[in-house]
């Protein structure tokens, strides 16, 4: 949201977000408007509330093309329908004149993805794109995102709480806790040799479909922290099984880990391996 300039009015973003040479955080609204929906697109979690309810699906799609590509009405309509067909929407001409509420959740999310792809973006930010969908529809949408990425070569930032979705789609992973990145790495490395105790905890406490065990699940004790009253030192220390004295006072920096990637934890890699 910060990168897209879509923060709530009381949110302030500092630092730098460079996209194709421009710093998005200091860009003017008009510059942002030329980028957003064009080379930088977004897919939101809930397609019902992120599509305009009183506008036909077709108009919402052609609007993007007319504005960013300067297409005429007829050309925009043809391209929009072609895109609906590409995201495997059956009977695209009929859907084109429908309102969002007339479509199922899966079709609405396909419309969102079609909208994001219209201008051939270089980056798509997908925020929990399948969380609101049933598993069989989720599998279809993830296939579609994968296909779109492989066909167009666009980059994707996929935001999700579902480790299975990450395992299927991502090349690299950043694990966040309390507003900070605590670990980054190549996807197989993250799942096979997680280095941060939080990553290890998340993987261990997720029930798996292919796991026949019925013993008690491993848990992460305690609650996610209150962001207004973060604990001093490492924000994860009250829930961490390996907590040491300095974790309570100093915050570990995100540094290269011996097995590759980065981690923000005082434990050395060897110690972690012995403990797990």
């Amino acid at each position: 949201m910060a990168a897209m300039g879509l923060l709530a009015p009381n949110g302030r973003a500092t630092g730098e977000v460079r996209f194709a040479g421009a710093n998005l955080l200091t860009a003017r609204e008009s510059e942002l408007n030329a980028i957003r929906g064009n080379t930088l697109a977004m897919v939101f979690q809930d397609p019902m509330t992120s599509l305009t309810p009183h506008m036909k699906v077709g108009r919402q799609l052609t609007e993007v093309l007319q504005r960013h590509r300067g297409l005429g009405k007829a050309a925009a309509r043809d391209q929009a329908i072609a895109m609906l067909r590409r995201v495997q929407i059956p009977e695209p001409e009929r859907r084109f004149v429908m309102y969002p509420h007339e479509l199922s959740g899966g079709l609405r999310q396909r419309v969102m993805i079609a909208m994001a792809l219209l201008c051939g973006p270089r980056l798509i930010i997908a925020d929990e794109p399948t969380t609101a969908l049933d598993v069989t529809v989720q599998a279809q949408i993830l296939d579609l995102i994968r296909l779109a990425r492989d066909e167009t070569g666009t980059s994707i930032i996929l935001i999700t709480h579902d480790l299975g979705v990450v395992a299927g789609l991502a090349d690299r992973v950043a694990v966040m806790y309390a507003g900070r990145i605590v670990e980054t790495g190549e996807v197989r490395r993250i799942f096979k040799t997680p280095q941060h105790p939080y990553t290890q905890g998340l993987l261990a406490c997720t029930p798996r479909l292919d796991d026949a065990a019925t013993a008690a699940l491993r848990t992460i004790p305690g609650q996610p922290p209150n962001l207004q009253r973060l604990p001093p030192g490492c924000a994860y220390h009250p829930r961490c099984p390996y907590v040491m004295d300095r974790c309570r006072t100093n915050r570990p920096a995100l540094l290269p880990a011996a097995v590759g990637g980065m981690k923000a934890c005082f434990l050395d890699d060897l110690h972690l391996k012995a403990a797990s």
């Binding site: 069989t136 279809q140 296939d143 292919d210």
Partner: peptide, 23 residues
């Protein structure tokens, strides 16, 4: 088949979606 498995090797090796369309 549709449930994603939190393991990159297994998740990428399994067959793709077998159902079509919506409920």
């Amino acid at each position: 088949t549709a449930v994603p498995i939190p393991d990159p090797d297994q998740e990428r090796a399994k067959p793709r979606a077998v159902t079509f369309g919506d409920l």
